[in-house]
Simulated scan of single mutants.
Amino acid sequence: MSNRYEIRFSGAGGQGLITAGIILAEAASIVEDQYAVQSQSYGPEARGGASKSEVIISDAPIDYPKATLVDACLALTQEAADKYADTIKPGGLLLLDTDFVKKPPAGDFKIYRFPIINTAKNDIGRAIVANVVALGAMVALTGIVKRESGEKAVLRRVPEAFVELNKKAFNTGFEQVKALLD
């Protein structure tokens, strides 16, 4: 039997969470030579509607490419938390943006809270890298890929002028969540 791990990034359209899912899948498949698939879903709105990106990572070929019960979920908005937390496995993980999810959903999972968007805006200086902060946070929370693999996958996708910004964003998210876990 293979080890199959399912992760969901959820929030509002335009927050870059689909890109975060793609980067995680690349970290697993290209950098670490695991099997990975990524899928996405979003509402009809171009921006602002609920969206999700799901990544399945396995040590064996993946026979069904859709997430069923996720091991870990990130929710950047209240709508996303309300809509997507219901399919977290018992004992799973839920990471919420402290500032935008005021009412955590109930369930048999462990909840972690971290101000992802405000960290991007205030600590990094650019709200646009909130998805990279979130990716670093999820890598730290789940341990599904190595920190170095996640960072390498991020840096493969950004223009040279934004390498340091994205490196700082990824590592800040990683370090902040590692501190929560300690």
Rank of each mutant, 00 (worst) to 15 (best):
L17G: 05
R4C: 03
G143A: 08
L165Y: 02
D71L: 03
T19H: 10
I88M: 06
G49S: 14
I56L: 13
N3V: 12
A161D: 08
K152A: 14
E32S: 12
I117A: 12
K103Q: 13
K110T: 15
V158D: 04
L95Y: 06
K102H: 06
G173T: 03
L69D: 08
A106D: 14
Y5Q: 14
G49N: 03
A137T: 04
K178V: 08
L94S: 05
S53P: 05
V37D: 03
L141Y: 07
I62V: 03
G13F: 10
K121A: 15
L165A: 08
L155A: 02
T87C: 12
L141F: 10
K146V: 00
N171S: 08
E175T: 12
F162G: 01
I30P: 00
G107A: 08
V163E: 14
A127Q: 15
K167N: 05
K102C: 00
G43H: 11
I88E: 08
D63N: 12
A85K: 01
D71H: 15
G125N: 09
S10C: 12
E151D: 03
R157I: 00
N118R: 15
D33S: 13
G107E: 05
G107L: 08
T172M: 10
F109W: 07
N118A: 03
A75C: 14
F100Q: 13
R147V: 00
Y64H: 13
T172A: 10
D82H: 11
V139W: 05
V177L: 15
I128Q: 14
D97S: 04
V177K: 06
V145I: 07
G125C: 04
T142N: 04
L93V: 01
L180Q: 10
K66Q: 13
S29T: 11
V31D: 01
D71A: 03
C73Y: 07
L96Q: 06
